[in-house]
Simulated scan of single mutants.
Amino acid sequence: MTQAPAAGTPDAAEDPRYEAAIFPVFLLQTLAQVAASRGIEPQTLCRGLGFHAEDLDDPAFRVSYRQASLMIRRALQLVPGDGLGLAVGNRNVLGTLGLLGHAVSLCPTLGDAFDIGMRYQVVAGGITQSSVRLSGNEVWVEAGFRFPDVEIQVFAVEELFASLLVYGRSLVGKDFTPLRVELAYPAPAYAAQYGSLFGCPLRFGAEQNRCAIEARWLMHELPNHNPLALKQVLALLETEHTQVRQKLDLAATVERAIERALRRGPSLEHIAGELNMSSRTLRRRLGEQGLSFETLLNNVRRTRVMSLLMNPELPVERVAEQSGYADVRSFRRAFKRWTGVSPSEFRQ
């Protein structure tokens, strides 16, 4: 029996990237370990998804986003206890990142490790799309999403920021601690776990998911730096990255351009101009990948809308404005088309 996509999830018929087997299974392997420690057989999480628990031990094995998201959704339903994303992230080690983990450990400074991590994050199997932004004496690590999959966004954010803490302490020592963490969703019942894990001020109901660290950490020299070994590992990473990017590059570039212009209601002509090509060329090149500009615009808008709606204090009018809609009425129509319910019903 075919499982229909849940509210806020991407439609495989609209976006062929949803079915592309490009995601390494490192995250799913850790998820299976956490599930096993809580009494759930890993095979139960994999059943019917097109792979077996044993496949998660193969570093060369790849799954699609659809498969990964369904396994995570199933774990959230079956695995007892709260804060599953925190538990998975906290269980990670640098080796969980595979070849990328080896590369960041060989970097000269933590700042270089961040650069490498962001550049090659797609080969590590994460379901978020992170970015790093320097602001004065602070560095913000911001969590974005590859697809507007609201059901697993909390899990994804928890896993990302808990992992960031683990990786940072593995590289520079136990004193590595965030300045503060902001989450774009209400405080869950297990919010105390966040405080115990991160040991810094927390803000729920923020406008976006992000974590601040002191900029001075970027200059911290790493003990295992080896220029020759790093060069060799980066060559291998680049080969793997190129293979993935060939499937994702154009779509990701267009989506980034749409994100930058989202509040202005970007058009095909505007985005094509940003990318130094004609609108006809852009439409043709997207068509060659089975995509359309309208699909990508909808994906970006849905991702932004779902993230903003997780903040219960943000008015619907503000959500519409920040998502590039000319008026609230057109926003409500689009949202009802995506989910079958109104924005206020969705929040409830």
Rank of each mutant, 00 (worst) to 15 (best):
P5Q: 07
P5V: 10
A7V: 10
G8I: 01
G8S: 00
T9C: 09
A13Y: 04
P16F: 04
R17G: 03
F23H: 12
F23Q: 14
L27E: 11
L28D: 09
T30H: 11
V34F: 07
V34Q: 12
S37P: 02
G39S: 07
G39Y: 02
L45S: 04
C46T: 04
R47A: 11
R47N: 09
G48M: 02
L49H: 07
G50E: 00
H52Q: 14
A53Y: 03
A60L: 12
F61D: 07
S64C: 06
Y65Q: 09
R66K: 14
A68S: 15
S69C: 09
L76Y: 08
P80H: 09
L84R: 03
L86N: 04
G89S: 10
N92Y: 00
V93N: 12
L94D: 01
L99A: 03
L99S: 03
L100T: 02
L100K: 00
H102C: 08
T109Y: 08
T109K: 02
T109Q: 09
D112H: 15
D115S: 14
R119D: 11
V123I: 15
V123E: 07
G126S: 13
I127V: 13
Q129W: 10
Q129G: 05
S130G: 09
S131T: 15
S131L: 01
V132D: 08
R133L: 11
G136A: 03
F147N: 07
D149P: 09
D149Q: 10
D149M: 06
V150D: 05
L160G: 02
L160V: 01
F161L: 08
A184D: 05
Y185G: 02
P186N: 11
Q193L: 14
Y194F: 14
S196K: 14
F198I: 01
G199L: 05
G199K: 13
G199M: 06
F204C: 08
Q208I: 06
Q208S: 15
A212D: 09
A212N: 10
E214L: 11
R216G: 11
N226H: 14
P227L: 05
K231I: 06
Q232C: 06
L234C: 10
A235L: 03
T239D: 13
E240I: 03
H241C: 06
L248Q: 09
L248C: 07
A251F: 00
A252H: 10
E255I: 00
E255A: 14
R256V: 02
A257W: 02
A257D: 07
A257S: 15
I258P: 03
R260H: 08
L262W: 00
L262D: 03
R263E: 15
E269N: 12
A272G: 12
G273K: 14
M277N: 02
S279Y: 00
S279C: 05
T281P: 06
L282A: 01
F293N: 06
F293E: 14
L297I: 01
N299R: 15
V300F: 00
V300T: 00
L308Q: 05
M310V: 07
P312V: 11
E321G: 00
E321C: 01
S323M: 03
A326L: 12
D327P: 05
S330A: 14
R332K: 13
R332V: 13
R333S: 14
A334N: 12
F335T: 04
F335V: 07
K336N: 09
R337D: 13
P343L: 01
P343T: 03
P343G: 03
F346K: 11
R347W: 11
Q348W: 05
